[in-house]
Structure formats: C-alpha cells, structure tokens
Simulated assay, not measured.
Amino acid sequence: MASNAPGQCCIEGVKHEGATKGSMIKVRGFDAYIVAPTGSIVHKNTAILYLPDYYSIYTNAQLIADQFAANGYYTIVPDVFCGDDFGKTPKGPDFALVPWLQSKHAPKDVEPVVDAALQHLAEEGYTKIGSVGYCFGAKYTIRYLAKGRGVSVGYVAHPSFVDEDELRAITGPLSITAAETDEIFPSEKRQKSEKILREIKVPFQINLYSGVSHGFSVRPDLSVRIEKFSKEAAFFQAVQWFNEYLV
C-alpha cells in the first residue's frame, strides 16, 4: 500500500468550536454540507469536493470547508459515512476500526455518495473540480483523480488505506501533506509514493511537517503553537495548489 491501514491515531485529536457559514442539504438522498464563496474572490465554475475523515461532517470539517469558501471555492462535504461515522456508530467491547470500515464503509458504500456529490456539482454548473481528502477521505480523492472520474486536481493530508495501484492510476496534479510522526503514512510510504509519482509523471508535491502527528491538519490542539502553525500551513498548501492547477 502507498499508506497503511488506519489505526488509533486516525480517531484521536481535538474537536474545534466556531460558527459555521454553510448549510446542510440532501443530495440524492445523502446528507452534504455546502458553502459558497464568502469573500471578494470567486473562482467561477470551480469547486472543491471535500472528502472527510472518520468523523465525517462535524465542526472541524465545516470550518475548513468555510475556509476554502473564503478563498473563492464553492465547497461540498458529502457524508461519506451515511450517518454512521466514527463519532456516531455504536462501539461495544469488540469494536475494531478496520473490520467496521471493511464491512460498512468500503468503496462500494462510499462511492455512491461521492458520485452524488459530483453530480450535484455538475448540475450546479461546476466544471473544474478539485478534491481534498483527509485521512479516510484521501483514498477517495486519489481514486477519483483517475482519468474520467470527475476530479482534475487533488490534495490529501496524512492519507490512510491508499493502495499503490490507486496512486499509480491518477492522471492529475496531487499535493500531499505529511506528518513527521505517522504510523499510517511513515517515511517509507512517503518515499514509495514519491517514487510512484515520479514514474507516472504527474505534477506533485509532498510537504513534511515536523513536530506534529497524524491528523494534525484537521484535529490539532490549537493551543499548541506548532500544531496550530502546521494546520494553517497545510491549509494554505492546499489553497496554493488549487490556485495554481485548478483555477
């Protein structure tokens, strides 16, 4: 794999607080959070498909989506867990993350939700689609960056569960955010991913942030200076990437 299967670090972190600016809608029966550009910059016909981590649509994800909107991008966050994200699913003594994912949240379960979000964007007139994927969502950003799947530019942060063949199949520019301490996307996986990206000859970027661990770009402790700085830097990495390759 280009990244390992998820572990405990994928579900740890700090829940953030703040007023969100978007709204919840139904997209072909699935829940989604949408937010339109809120500032003076508006990138016409351009949208961000935000594929979230194991907590799906929650405050942290909504606030980041709002930030993309503030930078000119219409953004949609589909509930890829269909109401059964990690925060909501019952967890008895025998609960295990990977079997739960494989039995209830495999590609056959997730991709209809992603397809519905892409259809919504097409119906709204968005023709240039970038995708961001955090942890769990990274796998699907990469899967949909393959030819003909609707995404033309990708950004992923501390990816999990990505197969090498999935990475090898992408056809568009990809930016990757990585943490110094990350058992899911350790140095050997970063190096292997770089080797694959060099071989397939797509524009790519891999930024490594010291002093932080898996999940830092979404669920950091904002009272810790290096975590706050790295989270903000990772976000601007994504914005700069889309400004260069998507607009």
Rank of each mutant, 00 (worst) to 15 (best):
G137C: 04
P186H: 01
G137A: 03
L121F: 08
K189L: 04
V113G: 02
P78T: 10
Q67H: 06
A70P: 00
N71M: 00
K91F: 05
G72H: 06
H120I: 01
T59S: 13
S175Y: 08
F161T: 07
N71C: 02
G148Y: 04
T141H: 03
K104M: 11
G148E: 09
Y144T: 01
P186V: 07
G172N: 07
E164W: 09
A116Y: 13
S193Y: 09
E166K: 02
D115A: 10
L174Q: 00
T75S: 12
S187R: 15
G148A: 09
P107Y: 08
L97V: 04
G92A: 11
D182S: 12
G92S: 12
S175E: 09
I170E: 06
G148F: 12
P107W: 10
E180T: 08
G87I: 10
V153A: 01
S160G: 14
I76V: 15
Y126G: 01
P107R: 03
G133W: 07
G137S: 06
E164K: 13
Q119K: 15
G137H: 02
P173I: 10
I142E: 03
Q119F: 03
Q67A: 15
A122H: 12
I64A: 11
K192F: 13
G148W: 10
H120F: 15
E180R: 03
R168S: 05
V132A: 05
D115K: 10
D115I: 01
G87Q: 11
F136N: 05
G150M: 11
T75W: 06
Q119N: 14
E166W: 08
V156K: 01
T181N: 13
G148V: 11
A117H: 12
K192Q: 14
S152A: 15
V132R: 00
G87Y: 07
E124I: 04
L101P: 07
D163Y: 00
V156D: 05
I64T: 14
Q191N: 07
H158S: 05
S187C: 10
G87H: 11
E166N: 11
D66L: 10
L118V: 01
E180Y: 02
K104I: 00
